[in-house]
Design a protein around this nucleic acid. Structure first.
Lengths: 157, 157
DNA sequence: ATTATACTGATAATAATTATTAATTAGCTA
DNA sequence: TAGCTAATTAATAATTATTATCAGTATAAT
């Protein structure tokens, strides 16, 4: 039984070990709780999760993990750029797995009518960021952009 | 003395009455506290203020105004698009006077080294927003964008 | 001027996050 | 591989930010 679980975890995502290594490279210990938090994020890759939601998912299989530990480790994963911190339109702080550690953060289109959030994985900001360098001498390393408006469904209602 | 103060308030900003009218147009009463909160924002037009900071400015001249009133009215001014709500890099919720009620929210360039915040008043997002309409059917009404990186000074250090 | 109702101040309540502390554990060293 | 040490954890207290409550007050409509 334990073996089956191990197989599933190992096979689930080839990046899993990469993340484990990253944690150790940064000088942090690879604790079971850290793996659990990271796996929760991997298992809900395309969601924008609050800490309470992450905690809820974790409790289903690992009720012994404490809330403060989830807070601590989400923060740690954010500092290591493994997860991104964002806030959409509802005032909650949310986290999601970084799509690619070297690429810029992707954009979110937020429908003001139904609340739906659309992910835009293309960057599309290159020219605007170039202009910031020439106009202000500001070198952009990353960005975070939200666009508010109406999604296709709500626009046609 | 009262007259001098009145003159200064009236002369300070010709938009003052426009805002007062807007409050009444929206069906809200024009209370002295509401004027005080609005004037605090007008007197610190280019700052990104937390509620505590606004409260601090108000207390200097009007210590009788309560904190809950500041919260209530800042929220109200935000709903009426007189002030914008934003969060920069420090996790605090901040407010600033809207530059122009009809234009899109402006951008912020945040230096990761010294923390300086540069305002970009030009929009520059038109083409990217057009592409969202054609690719996703999403009609953008407003946006909010932060760019993280290095300012001119820190880049040359 | 009177009056209905929205608004305010003070403060209690709530929610989100951080700090504390004793006990546990990862991973280095012998 | 056992033992050691510092990092980490669980539980919970403390803190911080924000919202709700409610009795009293002030706005603006009549």
């Amino acid at each position: 039984m334990a073996l089956i679980i191990m197989e599933r975890v190992d096979g689930m995502n080839k990046n899993c070990d990469d993340f484990y290594n990253k944690i150790k490279e940064n000088g942090y210990k690879l604790t079971s709780q850290r793996k659990i938090v990271l796996n929760a994020m991997l298992e809900h890759e395309d969601e924008h999760l609050t800490v309470e939601e992450i905690y809820g998912y974790i409790k289903e299989t690992n009720p012994e993990v404490g809330l403060a530990t989830v807070y601590r480790n989400i923060q740690l994963l954010n500092e290591m750029k493994i997860v991104d911190k964002l806030s959409l339109a509802d005032g909650f702080t949310r986290y999601e797995l970084s799509n690619d550690e070297d690429s810029h953060t992707h954009h979110h289109l937020i429908c003001e009518d139904c609340g739906k959030v659309i992910e835009v994985k293309e960057d599309l900001m290159d020219s605007i960021e170039q202009s910031f360098l020439s106009s202000y001498g500001f070198l952009v390393k990353d960005h975070q952009a939200k666009f508010f408006g109406l999604c296709d469904d709500c626009r046609n209602k």
